[in-house]
Each structure stands twice: as C-alpha cells, then as structure tokens.
C-alpha cells in the first residue's frame, strides 16, 4: 500500500514539474511570436549615450555603479547580511579546522600566487570601468587570498594574519564608504548616488582616473565583497 503511495507521490511530483515546464514553454512560444525588437530604447540609450554620460567604457559597470547603483547598494547589503548570519551562527572563539597536510609544492604555490592574486584583484577593481571586472569580481578575487591561506595553513594561521574583526571592520567600512560616496551627490546638490549627473568630472574617457565616482565606488564594493566572502568562508569552515 505504502509502495503505491510512494509511486503516486513521485508521479504527482513529476506531473507538477512537467506542467510547469509546459507553461514556461508556452511563455517562450508566445514571446517568440511577438515582435519585441523595438522595445529596447532604455538599453539603446545606455549604449549610445552611456559612455558620454557616465564616463565609463564598460557599460555593465556604468549600469551597476551609476544608473542602477541603488541595486548595488542592495546586493552589498545582501552579502553583509549573509556574512552577519554566518558569523552569528559560528561564535568567534572556536577556530579549529580538520587539518590536512599538503606537500611542500602546495605551500610554495600558495605563497607564490598570493601576490599575483592581490595584483589581479586590485587590477580588476581599479580597471572595472574600463575592462571586464569591477568591484564584485575583484573583491571575490581578493577574498581568495585568505581562503587560500586558510586551506593551506589552517584557520589559526589565516586568522592570525587577517583577524576576523579586521575583516568585519573592512566590510563595514566598505559599506559605509559606499553610502558616503553616494551622499557626495547630495552634498553637491544633486541626488543620492548621483555620479554622471553630479558632474564629478568624467575626465577623459578611457583613462584610469575618469568616470567620476565609479572607480571609488568600485573600490568600496571590492573591499566589502572581498571581506564579506572571506568572512563567510571562514565561518563555514570553522563550523564544528
């Protein structure tokens, strides 16, 4: 009896998922039938005017840090929330890790790669408005440094080099800095998070110091994301 019940349940689940897929197919089919090429004036505006208005060559960055910078504040908050949750779930004092001894090559490689990672991360952050990358990606790359340290040398070593409190501080400073940079717009008589509109001197398009506040916002997000992900990782691994 229970076996039949199990079967029925499984069948029910599969039927549900198939029905969902069919509905989504209907949506795609309907969209396919529509002629919706003409409806992208927003992106067309970004593409044609974006470089001039924001000063950033990388349009994704200009969308993230200028047109829709408020979203970025929101997602930075999400990371901060996640970091806060993880550091809440794992009390600070317990710092042990299931140790695995690696061969000497691993240690050497780690030591060797850390400067490269740092340079790569900083490059990604600072050139975020010129090339692919930006605060998020660069921050994540930076966060790999403590992660590598933790994996190869253990939590104690990693946390003695980069104290959790410091990371938390850096994360908070990043978030606060983002908001303060946003408030610069208010100070100069424009709106919150204004950049292209507030005339911070877009500079010469294509140079490092250009695009107004975008590089600084990138830096803030970079250190925030890096510190946040490092906290998340360390908390996860410290979990006994």
């Amino acid at each position: 009896m229970s076996k039949i019940n199990e079967r029925l349940k499984k069948l029910h689940t599969i039927a549900l998922v198939v029905a969902l897929a069919v509905f989504l197919l209907v949506v795609v089919y309907e969209i396919h039938n529509l002629d919706n090429n003409s409806k992208r004036y927003l992106s067309e505006h970004y593409i044609s005017e974006g470089v001039r208005e924001t000063g950033a060559i990388n349009l994704v960055t200009s969308v993230l840090y200028d047109y829709r910078a408020f979203d970025t504040l929101g997602e930075a908050t999400v990371i901060l929330t996640a970091a806060a949750i993880l550091s809440l779930l794992v009390p600070v004092s317990k710092a042990t890790m299931l140790g695995t001894k690696f061969s000497i090559i691993v240690y050497q490689t780690t030591k060797f790669s850390i400067p490269f990672l740092a340079v790569l991360g900083v490059h990604l952050i600072f050139f975020g408005h010129l090339s692919p990358g930006g605060g998020f990606v660069g921050g994540v790359v930076l966060s790999i440094i403590p992660i590598l340290l933790t994996i190869t040398y253990g939590v104690e070593f990693s946390e003695s080099k980069l104290k959790p409190a410091k990371k938390k501080l850096v994360e908070d400073i990043g978030a606060i800095g983002f908001i303060l940079l946003g408030l610069l717009g208010v100070v100069t008589g424009s709106n919150f998070l204004a950049n292209g509109q507030a005339n911070f001197g877009p500079g010469n398009t294509g140079e490092l110091i250009s695009a107004g506040l975008i590089p600084y916002l990138n830096v803030m997000i970079g250190i925030k994301v890096g510190a946040g992900l490092a906290i998340i990782f360390n908390s996860l691994i410290k979990e006994k």
Binding site: T61, L124, G133, G134, V137, V140, I144
Partner: peptide, 8 residues
C-alpha cells in the same frame, strides 16, 4: 563581466 563573476 557575468562570465567572470560566474567563474569565480
């Protein structure tokens, strides 16, 4: 951009 973020 998305590719890099996804990769990392």
């Amino acid at each position: 951009d998305a590719a890099m973020a996804e990769a990392i």
